[in-house]
Amino acid sequence: MFLAWFEANKRYSEARDIKYADFPQQFVYNENSLRWQPRKRGFAIGRIRSVPPGKGEDYYLRLLLNIQKGCTSFEDIRTVNNNIYPTFRDACYVLGLLDDDKEYIDAIKEASIWANGAYIRRLFVVLLISNSLTRPEHVWESCWSDLSDDIAYKHQQRHNNPDLTLSDDSLKNYALLDIEKIMQSNSKSLRNYDSMPLPIESLLNESGNRLVLDELEYDVFAMRDELAKYLSTITTEQKKVYDTIMSAVTNKSGGMYFLYGHGGTGKTFIWKTLSAAICSRGEIVINVASSDIASLLLAGGRTAHSRFGLPIIVHEGSTCSISQQSPQAELLMKANLII
Rank of each mutant, 00 (worst) to 15 (best):
K181L: 00
K181P: 00
K181W: 00
K181S: 12
K181D: 07
I182P: 00
I182Y: 11
M183E: 00
S185Y: 00
S187C: 02
S187G: 00
K188Y: 03
N192I: 00
N192W: 07
D194E: 10
D194P: 02
S195W: 01
S195P: 02
S195E: 15
P197H: 05
P199V: 03
I200F: 08
E201I: 09
L204H: 01
L204N: 05
L204K: 07
E206A: 10
E206Q: 10
G208V: 06
N209I: 06
N209F: 06
N209K: 04
N209L: 06
R210M: 05
R210S: 12
R210N: 04
V212F: 03
L213H: 07
L213P: 00
E215N: 11
E215I: 03
L216W: 10
Y218W: 08
D219K: 06
D219F: 07
F221V: 12
M223H: 08
R224A: 14
E226S: 14
L227R: 12
A228L: 09
A228F: 08
A228S: 14
Y230P: 02
L231H: 04
L231D: 02
S232R: 09
T233A: 13
T233M: 10
I234M: 15
T235G: 04
T236K: 14
T236V: 14
E237T: 13
K239F: 12
V241S: 09
V241K: 01
V241L: 13
V241H: 04
Y242A: 04
Y242P: 01
T244K: 12
I245T: 01
I245M: 01
M246T: 08
S247F: 06
S247E: 14
A248K: 06
T250A: 11
T250N: 11
K252P: 01
S253C: 05
S253F: 01
G254F: 00
G255C: 03
Y257M: 00
Y257R: 00
F258H: 03
L259V: 15
L259W: 06
Y260L: 10
Y260S: 12
G261T: 10
G261E: 03
G263W: 10
G264I: 12
G264M: 11
K267R: 11
T268S: 13
I270W: 05
W271M: 15
W271C: 13
W271F: 15
K272E: 14
K272L: 15
L274C: 11
L274T: 08
S275Q: 15
A276N: 09
A276W: 11
A277N: 12
A277Q: 14
I278W: 10
C279I: 10
C279N: 15
S280P: 11
S280N: 12
S280T: 10
